[in-house]
Amino acid sequence: MASRAGSTGIDASLYRREGQWCTALVDVSLGTTAAQEAVDALPGVVGKLLASQQASEADIAALAEALVPAQGHASPVARFVAVNNGEVVLDELIDGLKVEAADVDCGPFPNLVALARARGGQFPYLVAEASKDGGEVRLYHSSVQGVGESRGVTGDPEEAHHARKVPGRYDEPKNRSNTEEIWRRNADELAKQIDELARENYVRLIVLAGDIKARELVASKLGSAHKPITSILEQHTRTGGADQAAFAAAVQGQVDEVLGRDVEELSKRVANRTGNDRPDLALGFDEVVAALQQAQADTVLVGQYQDDETLMALDADPWLCGEDSEEHSESVIGSWPAPEVLLRATALTDATIRYVPEGVLPEGVGIAALLRWPNAAEPAT
């Protein structure tokens, strides 16, 4: 499966694949008889819509097979599926998104806007729970339900607690030293697992909980690059009576803090560049299109959806142009709604796209871009 849309946008390799694409965004919520009946009917409904857009039989069959209900997910939940040449390339559940009617699209490149909006700004993070006889570390993504990867460290409980079984022996310096050495060894192994997962997945947050002594040991052994992004929760979660709901809420609070800081930072970056002299900020639709054409846009910020605009998609650099442009006519592959073409150009120029809340962009501005290099100064008159 191709990589998900994240804070850096959609995987550009998706747009480089040849052949026809078919995408579908559908509601797969359960919970009522009517909802179950609606999900059961999806393959037929979507199949007819695909056929009306001249989708191939292979694409219709592959996409219809992927339209299964979201067992274990709270309503509402949507499923986004993208098929290329009869192969399911993306199959994602989007929690919290209510889809009123199936949204189906076929064309020479995938329409990934719905997925990008749902996933934009997501980041990977780790949750580690430590105990004296081992621990576990799990990889998550901030807007994806479920564990991405899990690793555990299991020490020998008998070895670790042997001295406690002999009355009066644990207090002896030798036995106490041996037991503490076992705890340190387990903590060292768990810290190595955390560092490895964090490094491989570019995580932005590590949440550490568990036995107080064990989590202190683990925290002290983490690599210097990961200590600043580690948050310690004062919860011993590896016990039978642990409140898992409270723990999950505390972890989500840490995730929300990171997301909030992201939006605040973007808002500050825009505010610092807004004014008469803003050589490294593009404001408005036309300026953003021009910046993308030059691969100058570093981060595209979308406050309003730009649904009322259309753009021409090109099969080579600069990847897009305006409807009235007479340039690049040999590269034009067609005209589409601006959100689709903008997202494609953003990915193909290795830029970031973020769908931001109200207040980040100046009043009356629906789209902007932070630039990789400043615009040339206007010549003096």
Rank of each mutant, 00 (worst) to 15 (best):
E181L: 07
R238W: 03
Q36C: 11
W319Q: 11
R372I: 09
G146P: 02
T8N: 14
C321S: 11
Q193S: 05
E87R: 15
A380Q: 14
P339E: 01
Q36F: 15
V365S: 03
D317W: 09
A82V: 12
G334A: 00
P337L: 04
V99R: 11
A219I: 01
A61L: 14
H226P: 05
M1F: 01
L25H: 07
V251M: 04
A291C: 09
V39L: 07
D256F: 08
D11H: 13
A295I: 09
M312E: 15
V251W: 02
I353W: 03
M312P: 00
G284T: 08
E264S: 15
G152M: 06
A271R: 13
A35E: 12
L197F: 00
V137N: 01
H328L: 00
G275Q: 09
G303C: 06
H141Y: 13
L217N: 10
G152K: 11
S231Q: 14
V255M: 02
A62D: 10
A51R: 13
A24W: 08
V88D: 09
R79Q: 06
R16E: 10
Q254W: 08
K165G: 03
A249K: 12
S56M: 13
D171E: 15
G260M: 08
L266N: 09
T237L: 00
V104M: 01
M312A: 10
A347I: 11
S13Q: 13
N111D: 15
A245F: 05
D59K: 06
E159W: 02
N111Q: 09
G86M: 11
V203L: 00
R344L: 00
N186G: 06
L63Y: 12
R269N: 13
T239N: 04
R17A: 10
F80A: 08
R372F: 02
P124M: 06
E257S: 12
V68R: 14
V356H: 00
L301G: 08
L14H: 09
T230M: 07
